[in-house]
């Protein structure tokens, strides 16, 4: 319906007369545009142009065409509503019902077929059929349910393999415990703290080295201080690991070496003072 309306409207518009502005108008427009182009711009010039409307008879023709279209549509709808309504006779519904029941008739037929005696044809019959098949006589037609069964079996097999396969993500570490005894080594009760007085004396010597102007002017000053810091950090690291893991011979030996190096370095510092 919309397409029809559009078509009718287009026809009506095409039949409308063409109206051109008077020939003198275009030069006037050009003159105004030229005059205003540099001064006020195109927009202002356009605003000052006169507005032309089509003659009233054009709009009247458009309105008549649209009204005629609306009348046609309303008349058609009215006539449709006036058509009489008919119900089909009961016999028609009965016939439809019987035809829908037709599939139910297969059940007794199949029961009858099952009661029939089964006869196997002679082997040569099958052989002849096989020979008569074109080309691929060995091809078997596999029913859909067989394929579904195979796919299901494959899925089950894959799931089983996935479940049973040894995966390093799933195997938790199994812990077992053992107990034994051994004699305590000397390291168990070894004293590695040193004497606080001694540490204070060392610190005092280092401070003197740091305060001594002659030592500070030495080329070795920065190197010695860097080395001292490194050894102190190492000593702290060993002390920390002893705090966590306890003392053993290796740690005590490492601490001993660090202390020897600190002592050696301290002697060098003292010589610089």
């Amino acid at each position: 319906m919309a397409e029809h309306n559009r078509h009718t409207l287009e026809n009506a518009l095409q039949q409308l007369p063409q109206h051109q502005p008077p020939a003198t108008l275009w030069p006037q427009i050009e003159a105004v545009l030229e005059a205003d182009r540099s001064a006020k711009g195109l927009d202002e010039a356009l605003e000052r142009l006169p507005v032309y409307q089509p003659p009233p008879q054009v709009w009247q023709a458009v309105e008549r065409a649209l009204q005629e279209e609306r009348d046609n549509e309303a008349g058609l709808k009215s006539r449709l509503r006036e058509l009489p309504a008919y119900d089909p006779p009961a016999a028609v519904w009965k016939r439809i019902d019987q035809s829908l029941q037709t599939s139910g008739a297969e059940v007794p037929l199949q029961e009858q077929l099952q009661q029939l005696s089964a006869y196997d044809p002679p082997a040569e019959v099958w052989e002849n059929i096989k020979q008569a098949l074109p080309g691929n006589a060995d091809r078997r037609v596999v029913p859909m349910y067989t394929w579904l069964a195979r796919i299901a079996a494959l899925i089950a097999l894959a799931a089983g393999a996935w479940y049973l396969w040894p995966s390093d993500h799933n195997t938790a570490l199994q812990a077992s415990y053992g107990h034994s005894t051994e004699p305590a080594s000397l390291a168990w009760n070894a004293d590695v703290e040193g004497w606080p007085e001694e540490e204070r004396a060392i610190q005092h010597a280092v401070e003197q080295f740091q305060d001594d102007p002659l030592a500070r002017s030495s080329d070795h000053y920065d190197d010695l201080m860097d080395e001292w810091e490194e050894l102190n950090e190492a000593k702290a690291a060993i002390a920390e690991i002893m705090e966590l893991y306890g003392k053993d011979a290796q740690l005590i030996r490492q601490m001993s070496e660090i202390e020897q190096e600190r002592s050696s370095l301290l002697r060098r510092m003292v010589r610089e003072i």
Partner: peptide, 10 residues
């Protein structure tokens, strides 16, 4: 104190 118990978690 001269004997240590050694617990090994394997």
């Amino acid at each position: 104190t001269s004997k240590l118990h050694v617990i090994t978690k394997r």
